[in-house]
Simulated scan of single mutants.
Amino acid sequence: MRSLDLRLLAVFDAILREKSVTVAGESLGLSQPVMSQSLSRLRDYFGDQLFVRTSEGMMPTPRALSLASSVGEVLGIVSQRFEPPQAFDPCTSSRTFSFFATDFAAAILVPSLMARFRPHSPNLRVRALPMRPKGMDEALESGEVDLAFGNLSEFGTGFYQTGIYHSDYVCLARGDHPEIRRALTVQQYLSASHALISPLPPGYDGLEKFLRDMLDPARIVLCLPNFFTVLTFLPQSDMLVTMPRRAGTTAARIIGAQVLELPVKIPGFDVKLFWHERFHKDLANQWFRNQVREAFNDR
């Protein structure tokens, strides 16, 4: 059986509806010659005139009338299956959005996100996941996780990225530190005891290498598993902690620590947002990306 171009069925349906080849062409955005050629192909395929010119317009033959319901059904199925995606409605959606981030990045972002979601999107859920040494790219590609953000470089082809902000580092000392107040000298920094987050999450390990190269090994007294543990030990310690600025200022606000500018030069870094190309046009993913960008801008 010869194949039939689905576009010809749209021509059939339009002529049946409008009773005019010209008007049908206008409704489809097709010229008169294209419509005439399409009608000729339809007649050839079905072996029938299908539409005959009368005083009341192009009227269907009995064969055309017998085809009408089937043509409408086929066009309906095609329209339903291939129509443009409906806009994502956060007000009614119960979707769970997920992202990879460091513990402190999640602590900074989540309150802003939830404040945005709750008034108008009460059914949305958020899942924050820790950075992984391996497998983040596969999770983003499969759709298991929507986004990743941080100082990341391991994502290769097939991923989109956009910059969120540039960060440098600051040093934290407890608020009533006996020797350090408001400012920090190079000598104080190099001679002080330091706590180090180790191992740092993917993308941040350059800080650990820099500090280990710069400081006397005896000055690194404590290694912590994550940024969050700074909150529990620093108020009772005279040690210093070097942290990304946003994480540091957030921690200092919670525990009343001093935020000190570094007296040594440590290169900063760019925090970026990453997603897989499979979901670049996904309306829900687009909406979530915008929410993350705006939440960080609120900080």
Rank of each mutant, 00 (worst) to 15 (best):
C171K: 03
F296V: 10
K281N: 14
K19P: 00
E277Q: 14
A173R: 02
Q161A: 14
I164W: 03
R127V: 08
M239F: 12
I164D: 05
R181C: 08
M243H: 09
L109R: 04
G256P: 09
C91E: 15
N285S: 14
R2T: 11
C171V: 15
H120R: 15
R95I: 05
A10L: 06
D168V: 09
V78G: 00
D238H: 10
E26T: 01
F288Y: 09
R174N: 09
D205Y: 07
T249G: 00
F97S: 03
M1S: 13
L109A: 04
D48S: 15
F100T: 09
F155K: 09
P119C: 07
F97T: 08
P217Y: 10
V74K: 04
R43Q: 15
A106R: 06
Q37M: 12
L262Y: 07
C171H: 07
V264H: 06
A173G: 04
E56C: 05
R7E: 14
R245V: 13
S153P: 00
L9C: 11
N290Y: 02
G256M: 05
A252V: 04
F99I: 03
I108W: 04
G268A: 05
G163N: 13
L207S: 02
E56T: 11
L231S: 11
D270T: 13
D146K: 10
G57R: 06
F296M: 09
F296R: 01
L39N: 06
E179W: 12
F296I: 12
M136W: 03
V271D: 02
R43L: 02
S31W: 00
K134A: 12
L234Q: 04
Y160D: 13
H280L: 02
E277W: 03
A148W: 07
K134Y: 13
L152A: 07
L109E: 01
P85T: 05
A148I: 07
R293D: 00
I15E: 08
I15S: 08
L184G: 02
F149T: 08
F269Y: 14
V34R: 15
K209L: 13
R43H: 02
S40N: 12
N297Y: 13
L200H: 10
D137M: 02
Q258K: 01
R53H: 13
P133C: 01
R219D: 00
T242L: 04
Y204G: 10
